[in-house]
C-alpha cells in the first residue's frame, strides 16, 4: 500500500520534471539569434522563400503557441521534423538510441565488474598493501572524468599499442545483415560473432572511458559497506560454521552490502549516460550524443528538443526504476 503511494507520487514528480525540461529547452533554444531556416537555405534564397519555409516549420508563431503545438504533437508521439535531415525526429532519435544504449549498458557492466572485483579483492585483502594500492588507483580513477580517460585510452590503445578501434561504431566496409539498430545484440543473436567482435573492438575504449570513474565509485562504496558488514555477528557466525573468508564475503556480506551501492549506481548510471554525449563525439561513435552535438551546431531546433527530452526521459526513468528495485529488494521495506 505504502509502496503504491510512493510509486504514484514518484510518477507525478517525474512528470513535472519532464515538463520542466521541455519548457526550458523549448524556450532556451528559441532565444538563439539568427534564423535556422535562413541558415539551411542556399545563399540566393529570397526573403519570401525564407518566410514560406519558416511558416512550414511553424516558427512564425509566438513561442507559447509553438510550445502548445509541439506539446500536443509530442503527447501524440509526433516530435516534429528535423530541419537539417528532413526526417521525423522520432524516427531519427530512435534510430540512434540503440547505439547509445548498447554503449552505456556495456560501460555499466564493465564498471560493475571492475568495481565489484576491486571491492571484493580489497575486502579479502583488507589492511594489506594490495588494499592500499586499490585505494590509490580508485582515488585517481575518480578524480579524472570520462573525457580525459577517453583521450588517454585513445593514445595508449589506439596509437601506442593500436589494438582497438578509436573511431566509429563498426568497420564501414562490412556487410551488415541487421534489421534492428541494436547491432551488438543482434549480432550475438544471429551468432555472427565476427561482427560482434568488430563491434566490441569499436565499443571497448569508449565504454571503458565511461566505466572507469563509475568503477571507482562502485569499488569505494561497496568496499566500505562490505568492511562494515564483515564485523557483524552473522558474518562471524558463518565463519564458525566452516565457510572460507572468500565465501563469507561473497554469500553473507555481499547481499547485505550491495543495497546502498545499488542506489548509487542508479544515479551514477544517469551521469554515465550523460557522459556518452562527449565520449561519442570523441570516438566518432554514431550514437544519440554525437547526433545531439551536430543538431546544436546546425541549430536543428526540433531535433535538439527531441534528443534532450529523450535523455530526460531516460534519466528520470532510470531513477524511478532504481527506487522501485530498491524497494523490491529490501525485505524490510517490502513487508512494511
Amino acid at each position: 500500500m505504502a509502496l503504491l503511494q510512493t510509486l504514484i507520487l514518484r510518477v507525478i514528480t517525474t512528470a513535472v520534471t519532464l515538463l520542466g525540461v521541455a519548457v526550458i529547452v523549448f524556450f532556451v533554444i528559441r532565444v538563439v539569434p539568427g534564423n535556422p531556416i535562413a541558415m539551411m537555405l542556399p545563399p540566393g534564397a529570397t526573403a519570401e522563400d525564407i518566410a514560406n519555409l519558416t511558416a512550414i516549420y511553424g516558427l512564425d508563431k509566438s513561442i507559447p503557441q509553438q510550445f502548445f503545438i509541439w506539446g500536443t504533437g509530442v503527447l501524440g508521439g509526433d516530435f516534429g521534423t528535423s530541419i537539417t535531415l528532413k526526417q521525423p525526429v522520432l524516427e531519427l532519435v530512435l534510430g540512434r538510441l540503440p547505439a547509445t544504449l548498447e554503449l552505456s549498458v556495456l560501460a555499466l557492466v564493465m564498471a560493475i565488474v571492475i568495481g565489484g572485483a576491486a571491492a571484493l579483492t580489497g575486502t579479502r585483502l583488507r589492511e594489506t598493501r594490495v588494499e592500499g594500492g586499490i585505494d590509490v588507483a580508485q582515488g585517481m580513477a575518480l578524480s579524472v572524468p570520462d573525457f580525459l580517460w577517453g583521450l588517454v585510452l585513445i593514445l595508449v590503445f589506439g596509437v601506442l599499442v593500436p589494438v582497438f578501434q578509436i573511431s566509429g561504431r563498426v568497420t564501414p566496409s562490412l556487410q551488415l545483415p541487421f534489421v534492428s539498430d541494436f547491432y551488438l545484440v543482434e549480432s550475438l543473436l544471429r551468432l555472427r560473432f565476427d561482427l560482434s567482435l568488430d563491434l566490441l573492438s569499436h565499443m571497448l575504449l569508449p565504454a571503458l572511458a565511461l566505466a572507469i570513474p563509475l568503477a571507482a565509485i562502485i569499488g569505494q562504496l561497496l568496499k566500505q559497506s562490505l568492511k562494515e558488514t564483515m564485523h557483524l555477528d552473522y558474518v562471524t557466525l558463518a565463519r564458525t560454521q566452516g565457510y572460507s573468508e572468500a565465501k563469507v564475503i561473497w554469500s553473507q556480506a555481499l547481499p547485505n552490502a550491495i543495497l546502498p551501492t545499488l542506489t548509487l549506481v542508479g544515479v551514477q548510471f544517469t551521469f554515465l549516460i550523460g557522459g556518452t554525449v562527449i565520449i561519442e563525439r570523441l570516438f566518432s561513435y554514431e550514437g544519440l550524443g554525437n547526433m545531439a552535438i551536430d543538431a546544436v551546431i546546425n541549430r536543428d531546433l526540433p531535433l535538439i528538443q527531441g534528443i534532450v527530452i529523450l535523455f530526460a526521459v531516460i534519466f528520470t526513468g532510470v531513477n524511478l526504476l532504481v527506487d522501485l528495485t530498491y524497494a523490491a529488494l529490501n525485505p524490510r521495506l517490502r513487508h512494511g
Binding site: 529547452v25 532556451v28 549516460i273 554525449v277 546544436v296 535538439i304 534532450v308 530526460a312 528520470t316
Partner: peptide
C-alpha cells in the same frame, strides 16, 4: 538533474 550536463552546456 534530468539534463545531460555536457549537452546542456553545448546548447
Amino acid at each position: 538533474m534530468a539534463f545531460p550536463p555536457v549537452l546542456f552546456s553545448i546548447l
